[in-house]
């Protein structure tokens, strides 16, 4: 019973991270990518929780904490980077569409 639950949870988390990855790849603006990056971090933490539930070990508690910390630091870093330089936000498209956007 327990293993089937673990497998199902894992599948769900994996699906979440796949979705997040898709968003990272196609995300129109950078902010979508940042959000997706954060979700990836969270889904990995989730996976670790499932693993430690399955293996009944306490080893991974610190790593979960570190992962969430680093997810946060990554987001803050990207946001601060974008905050100072709004030009990066604009759409830099192919074949000159960015000119039209820029006005």
């Amino acid at each position: 019973m327990m293993t089937s639950v673990v497998i199902l949870t894992f599948a769900l988390l994996a699906a979440a991270s796949v979705l997040a990855l898709v968003r990272v790849l196609i995300g129109p603006t950078i902010i979508d990518r940042i959000i997706a990056f954060d979700l990836v971090a969270i889904s990995i933490v989730g996976m670790m929780v499932v693993l430690s539930v399955w293996w009944k070990t306490q080893l991974f508690i610190e790593i979960m904490l570190i992962f969430s910390l680093l997810g946060f630091v990554g987001t803050v870093a990207f946001v601060c980077y974008l905050h100072n330089d709004p030009t990066k936000l604009k759409r830099v498209g192919r074949k000159g569409t960015s000119k039209k956007e820029a006005q």
């Binding site: 080893l59 610190e62 570190i66 910390l69 680093l70 946060f72 630091v73 803050v76 870093a77 601060c80």
Partner: peptide
């Protein structure tokens, strides 16, 4: 005795300062 140690601790403190600096 358990996972941890100088490098990891040092880096975490470093990261916390980076966070502080960023904000």
């Amino acid at each position: 005795n358990l996972p941890g140690g100088g490098f990891i601790g040092g880096l975490m403190t470093g990261m916390s300062f980076i966070l502080l600096g960023l904000v």
